[in-house]
Amino acid sequence: MASIIIKNASVAFPIYDASSRSLKMRVLPGNMGGRIGGSGGHVSVVQALDDVSLTLNHGDRVGLVGHNGAGKTTLLRVLAGIYEPGAGSVRVDGHVAPLFDIALGMDPESTGYENIYLRGLFLGMSRREIRRRLPEIAEFTELGQFLDLPLRTYSAGMRMRLAFAVSTSITPDILLLDEGIGAGDAAFLDKANQRLGAFTDQAGIIVLASHADHLIKRMCTKAVLMERGRIVAVGQVDRILQRYRKRIAAA
């Protein structure tokens, strides 16, 4: 059973510019006029997540909404285990698959087949697993003989198909999506949507960060409104989206 429990998590990024990241500032203090930005500290800090608590259970489909810079992507990365919060705790049970960039790891000089392996390995599959799924993935892409050619000879739509086919062949417990998944041309779209439906139905928990209301309405059963690194509201999708619109109008 997949579950996510975040308690009072905070994530703060120190901002090092070229000079403060260098050793000179530490080895030769006073030489450069001392500290940069911030009060009292050595460096200025961006508070990306501020005291965030959230509990998600098996079956939850959650949409993250909020302005750019509200902390949606940072929260997704915390869930993926990429950022460990500086304060608070995160407990994630289940296999997590972050699909932030569905073409991550693909190489233009390698062939379509090689790229299926590459992408699969980046998604955490073993070689054996990929080999087993290879026929199914290859068939779904409808790329046929093209799979023997280097990826650089593909059109953007063909690349998208390949990335989509491999990325949706995994079966994670927890699926993290940033701005949804696109899938190329119209003819392919129906087929892709079907697959996407089956793919997302299998996941125990989905967290989707998006600015597209229709995407959130279609995929999610619950929404979280974020603002300046804080969670300001959790609840039904329609209610939260309404509140978000109101806040935009008020601003």
Binding site: S10, G86, A87, G88, V90, R91, V92, D93, H95, V96
Partner: peptide, 13 residues
């Protein structure tokens, strides 16, 4: 899978 916790939001090394 993972479990992370700590309590000092400090940037000093």
């Amino acid at each position: 899978m993972g479990d992370t916790s700590s309590t000092a939001p400090s940037v000093s090394l």
